[in-house]
Design a protein around this nucleic acid. Structure first.
Lengths: 132, 132
DNA sequence: GGGAGACATCGACGCGTGTCACTATTCGCG
DNA sequence: CGCGAATAGTGACACGCGTCGATGTCTCCC
């Protein structure tokens, strides 16, 4: 109970696969904000835009023209993504460049990752009940 | 299904990787509901519970005791997950069994997958995406 | 057939959140 | 050194959503 990963407050380091075991309330509450951050059309497009942009980074002035939203609104969404750990900020001159954090993507992949048969259950007499 | 890929209203069949190209407003609007469905602690736990339950399925009476929520609330969350295409319903006798739809999980994995480490794949049609 | 249990639906309430106009801050440039 | 541009913060408003109690529907069992 000490180190087995999954600090309940660090969804990036944690993110037990959903299928591995029943998620505890604390873990769920820790992970949900990251998903809430992604669960918005504008933020989804922002992520996609940053990912597909030159060198994988983009500043607000690059992103805003893609939307019909005010600049504070775009800034707000970027802050949400940043606070959720999905985007990294770097200020260069007058511009602020955003970049997707690979750990976050990895965490999401781990979360929804299928239960890979070869991955776990070495000695577990679990009978491998599922999908036999 | 035809294969042109990415019908804008079918996030399950669609789900272009976020990093592949900038997501269009319609696509983002189509995918967001599925993510919104998952972006809730209770629903996250419900998914996890169903996935880890015996035979990968569970009825409401199996799930409700794990929460301190009313039965209608649990039913509501299950409906949200069902409407989002994440859960399949099957009524057997008096009980209703829920099961996670693998296509949905696959769609989510596809969405967040393909994070370009080596930049782009030139014209490679083989994709070879999965970790093989 | 009637009663009991499992689950869904409905209507209502309160909080969270996406949006905007306005304002503040920070930096480069002349 | 002061002005303008890029970005973030603030307060307000409207809508969405999670929750509940009450009620409806269906199915099994005696």
């Amino acid at each position: 109970m000490s180190m087995p990963g999954c600090a309940p407050d660090d969804p990036l380091a944690c993110c037990t696969p959903l299928a591995r075991e029943p998620l505890g309330p604390e873990q769920a509450a820790a992970i949900a904000p990251m998903l809430k951050a992604v669960a918005d059309p504008v933020r989804l497009r922002l992520l996609s835009l940053v990912l597909s942009h030159q060198d994988g980074e983009a500043c607000v002035c690059d992103l805003q023209p893609a939307f019909e939203l005010s600049q504070p609104t775009i800034s707000h969404h970027l802050k949400v993504l940043h606070d959720a750990g999905l985007l990294a900020r770097e200020k260069r001159g007058v511009w602020v460049y955003y970049r997707v954090r690979p750990e976050a993507m990895q965490a999401l992949l781990t979360l929804f990752g299928a239960v890979p048969d070869p991955m776990v259950a070495p000695a577990a007499p679990l009978a491998a009940g599922a999908r036999a």
